[in-house]
Computed example of a mutant assay.
Amino acid sequence: MSLLLADLVWRPLTGTRWGLAISAAHLLAALLCFRAATVQPAVQPTAETPEGPGDQKSTRSLYWIGLALIMVLLSLNKLFDLQSLITIYGRGLAKDQGWYSDRRTLQVTLVAGAAAVSLVGLLVSLYLLRGHWRERTLAHFSLAFLLTLVTIRTTSYGPLDAFLYGLPTVGNRMNAGLELAGAVLVSIGALQALQSRKNSSARDRAGDPPEPYTNSAATVIPQ
């Protein structure tokens, strides 16, 4: 293979102020998600979420830690412009192997695949988020939007690039605005979870009794 790293015109750590701001926004969202993982209380099971309090706490912590790690990766991607490295390498590989002229077919396939994965993820999320809509929905779907945006952008498909980077009087601000908005919405979602913890603590201090935990499988009906 004749493609050399020297052929890759990639400049990490040379982002614009927009890029640095977006990277910082991703990192802030990661910190808030991690904070949500550490302070989320164990809630009593309901008919929609029948697992025990300990399971609830563990599941919530893992969920928010997972979101935090993904946001850290997105921050590093923006800071080091890793997606451009993948795009440039893929373009060079296509030229080196002689199928660059047919790249549109692959790009359309990748964009369609990203859309299909997002749709499947949406349907799966409708099931996984049952019982947790209030505290997880905004952060969850905002993250899904960010991942879809990054995936589609990496394909470097011409019409989408024109929309993200080349609109008259808007230029790159469309791409930057969408990604920044996604990061901000993830942060707001994490703050909603933190507010839920605050409200729960306030009820505890007020002396409100917790909801009873009953296991229907173990309930004995008196004769």
Rank of each mutant, 00 (worst) to 15 (best):
G166D: 14
L110Y: 02
D7S: 13
A25P: 03
W99N: 11
G207A: 04
L82T: 15
P41T: 03
S61N: 07
N215G: 00
A37S: 12
T169C: 05
G131V: 03
R103G: 00
T214S: 11
A190F: 04
L4I: 03
A24Y: 04
W64Y: 05
L167K: 07
A21K: 02
Y165W: 10
A114R: 02
A37N: 01
L128A: 13
M71G: 02
T105H: 10
W99P: 11
A206P: 00
A36K: 00
V150W: 06
T38A: 10
R205L: 15
E179I: 04
V220E: 11
N77Q: 12
R35L: 10
W99D: 12
V120M: 09
Y213P: 00
E51C: 05
A217G: 13
G113R: 09
L147W: 10
R130P: 00
P53M: 03
G66K: 02
L146C: 08
S196Q: 06
R173M: 10
K78W: 04
P222R: 14
K57S: 08
A25Y: 05
L126V: 06
G98V: 04
G19K: 01
G90K: 13
L119C: 08
A176Y: 14
A37C: 05
A218N: 08
I152P: 00
P212M: 04
D55L: 06
Q97K: 13
G98P: 05
G54A: 12
R91F: 10
L110N: 01
R104V: 13
S2Y: 06
I70G: 01
L85Q: 05
L191H: 02
A6Q: 15
M1D: 12
G189K: 02
A162C: 03
N175M: 11
A139Y: 05
A116C: 09
K78C: 08
T16D: 13
L27S: 03
V150E: 14
A24P: 00
F163I: 14
R136I: 02
V124R: 09
R153K: 11
G54W: 06
S23Q: 01
V124H: 05
L3T: 13
R136S: 09
R60D: 10
A218Y: 07
D96R: 14
G158P: 05
A47D: 09
E48W: 07
D204W: 13
W133T: 04
S23P: 01
L32D: 00
D81I: 02
